[in-house]
Amino acid sequence: MTIRHHLTDALLMAYSAGQLPEAFSLVAATHISLCDECRARLSAFDAVGGTLIEDCDPAAMDEDSLTATLARLTGAPARPRQVDRPARGLFPAPLRDYVGGDLAAVKWRPVGLGVRQAILPTAPGGVARLLYIPAGQAVPDHGHRGTELTLVLQGAFRDESDRFGPGDLEVADQGVEHTPVAEADADCICLAATDAPLRFNSLLPRLAQPFLRM
């Protein structure tokens, strides 16, 4: 798999810092599972976090803190294990976790013109969905106001500017007008994430505030 379109530095840093909405983190984790270049770039951003931890002025621990922690360590540390790899399917592990299986486990719903989608369960702040676009079909307008990430898992699509094949990630910021079309020779399956529409952003936290004390 030759990947030509990657996560941006800003997205990688936000993923490393733990600041991405869950839906975006899912796309980032799935892309990184396929892309050693972004895995290495992520490690560099994680090293920034490590340096910041190292530089923190130490906070005083409770007096019995170490004793309490030692008392919780039951038994020896786990041993390295040779992991049996599951038969390689289409979805990397983080995506399989959200779907509850591989491609066959997806609960598709038709959204018109042969296109199907499946919304995946993530925390408020973004929406993650799988898209199934028949060969040669244009992706219907799914109007996004913020950033949209689209990761190709199978097949390929083209828009006015470029081609996106398996493993490629398109980052479309607000205002990007584009009409992606699945290539003619194969159906295209993508994982896409958008910022949640603003009306959800403003309403949900307000309702949740009294209960969660946010």
């Binding site: 983190s25 984790a29 983080p94």
Partner: peptide, 18 residues
């Protein structure tokens, strides 16, 4: 970081495949 997301944000952080 992962502990912070679990506890403070009560969200999951999907991790890349091992």
């Amino acid at each position: 970081r992962n502990r912070r997301i679990d506890t403070l944000r009560k969200a999951r952080r999907p991790e890349p495949e091992d």
